[in-house]
Amino acid sequence: MLLSESARVTTAQEARFRIQTPNSKPRAVKVIALDSEAARLVDEISKQPWNGAAFFKSLSFEQSGGDNVKAWLNDLAGHTSDLVGEVANADCVVVIAGAGEDAASVSVIAELCNHYHKTLVALVVPQGSYDQDTVDRSLKALRPHAKMLVIAHERDYIEAMLTALRA
């Protein structure tokens, strides 16, 4: 019997001929901490080498004339940048809640993600002796907005996920 194409090409030898040219360009991943616990984690993680991921430790709001509220992201070096600009230029937005505090500011981020059609991934990483009620509150705040919501009890999951996403 003649070997079919599928049989011929699925061998280990044939796997060697896969084209080696990279099949993707670096992506802009924005990692935003939603509370102080998360900010601590983000601070640590940001010290490793990444492929251009941007890390922010908090979000602040500023009244800018009339009803307009402007949102700023604060990075770890103490600089601020415009939330709208960061989301508009993102490929993926990852928000992290340490589950210690309220994650309400996520709705502002989510609205922008919606507007710019960006995927929002939310990670809840309960720290230390967290209490279930606070975790639930964070989840409630995050659930309506995130395309993917992950509850991870091991903090090294954040790094694992960012690595997997080539952040």
Binding site: N23, K147, M148, Y157, A160, M161, A164, L165, R166
Partner: peptide
């Protein structure tokens, strides 16, 4: 060579 997306987190977590 793969390019995972946010919705692949189930797989990412299982591997982890």
């Amino acid at each position: 060579k793969e390019n995972l997306v946010g919705t692949d987190n189930g797989i990412i977590m299982a591997r982890h």
